[in-house]
Simulated scan of single mutants.
Amino acid sequence: MKLADFIKSEDFKKEKHVPVIEAPEKVKKGEKTEISVCVGKEIPHPNTTEHHIKWIKLFFQPDGDPYVYEIGNFEFNVHGESVKGPNTGEVYTEPFVKTWVKLNKSGTLLALSYCNIHGLWESSLKIAVE
């Protein structure tokens, strides 16, 4: 059994758990590039004490490289928890991140998200470096 056996992926327009990566199709080598990842782009994901996205991880697989590089690990630590009870808190985090990278080679961005109820979800996006 492998962890990969439990990672799900589907078209994000049909599924609210898939991380959606947004980045330019082409970037210039070594130039700062904005990348955003969210869960629930087309269909909002619940963000309650009982049901929420715990984290998103973003990776990069350069073309022809046998290794995957972790760009970032983004945690969402508050979902309306309070001493008054579930969903009564003053703060709710949203599963959306934005980061900047400098790429020297074309490759694939890979995102992995974790829902506290429905487990692991993944997506990928090719990006060309000129």
Rank of each mutant, 00 (worst) to 15 (best):
residue 38 C to H: 06
residue 41 K to R: 15
residue 24 P to N: 09
residue 93 T to W: 13
residue 41 K to F: 07
residue 110 L to A: 10
residue 59 F to N: 02
residue 77 N to Q: 05
residue 93 T to M: 15
residue 72 G to I: 05
residue 79 H to E: 12
residue 84 K to P: 07
residue 125 L to K: 15
residue 73 N to W: 08
residue 110 L to K: 10
residue 108 T to M: 05
residue 103 L to E: 06
residue 117 I to S: 11
residue 56 I to N: 07
residue 17 H to F: 15
residue 34 E to P: 01
residue 130 E to N: 11
residue 58 L to K: 04
residue 96 F to R: 11
residue 35 I to R: 01
residue 81 E to K: 04
residue 33 T to H: 02
residue 35 I to H: 00
residue 18 V to G: 06
residue 46 P to F: 05
residue 12 F to I: 03
residue 85 G to K: 07
residue 44 P to I: 04
residue 19 P to K: 00
residue 90 E to V: 13
residue 83 V to E: 11
residue 70 E to V: 03
residue 2 K to P: 01
residue 21 I to D: 01
residue 23 A to H: 02
residue 9 S to Y: 07
residue 103 L to F: 02
residue 86 P to E: 08
residue 78 V to K: 13
residue 128 A to E: 15
residue 59 F to A: 07
residue 7 I to G: 08
residue 1 M to T: 06
residue 84 K to T: 10
residue 103 L to A: 02
residue 52 H to T: 04
residue 83 V to P: 13
residue 89 G to W: 01
residue 122 E to K: 05
residue 106 S to F: 05
residue 88 T to V: 08
residue 16 K to W: 06
residue 39 V to A: 15
residue 114 Y to K: 09
residue 96 F to N: 10
residue 14 K to S: 10
residue 43 I to P: 06
residue 90 E to K: 14
residue 84 K to H: 12
residue 129 V to C: 02
residue 124 S to H: 11
residue 114 Y to D: 05
residue 98 K to Q: 14
residue 54 K to A: 09
residue 62 P to Q: 09
residue 119 G to F: 13
residue 19 P to G: 11
residue 63 D to E: 14
residue 128 A to Y: 09
residue 100 W to E: 15
residue 2 K to E: 15
residue 42 E to H: 15
residue 66 P to I: 06
residue 45 H to L: 04
residue 88 T to S: 12
residue 51 H to T: 07
residue 85 G to Y: 03
residue 116 N to V: 12
residue 125 L to Y: 01
residue 65 D to W: 00
residue 55 W to R: 09
residue 106 S to K: 08
residue 68 V to W: 05
residue 50 E to Q: 14
residue 121 W to S: 12
residue 72 G to E: 10
residue 119 G to N: 09
residue 111 A to F: 03
residue 128 A to H: 11
residue 95 P to M: 03
residue 115 C to D: 15
residue 9 S to E: 12
residue 2 K to R: 12
residue 63 D to G: 02
residue 118 H to N: 14
residue 109 L to F: 14
residue 4 A to I: 04
residue 56 I to S: 05
residue 72 G to K: 08
residue 99 T to R: 02
residue 97 V to F: 14
residue 70 E to W: 00
residue 119 G to T: 09
residue 11 D to K: 04
residue 82 S to R: 07
residue 69 Y to V: 05
residue 98 K to N: 08
residue 54 K to R: 12
residue 29 K to I: 09
residue 67 Y to Q: 10
residue 63 D to Q: 11
residue 21 I to Q: 02
residue 76 F to G: 04
residue 93 T to I: 01
residue 75 E to R: 12
residue 44 P to S: 14
residue 58 L to Q: 04
residue 78 V to S: 11
residue 79 H to R: 07
residue 2 K to T: 06
residue 104 N to I: 03
residue 46 P to A: 08
residue 46 P to I: 03
residue 64 G to L: 09
residue 106 S to Y: 10
residue 5 D to A: 11
residue 63 D to V: 00
residue 3 L to P: 12
residue 3 L to V: 15
residue 2 K to V: 04
residue 105 K to N: 06
residue 65 D to Y: 00
residue 24 P to W: 08
residue 10 E to F: 07
residue 126 K to I: 08
residue 70 E to K: 13
residue 107 G to L: 04
residue 38 C to I: 02
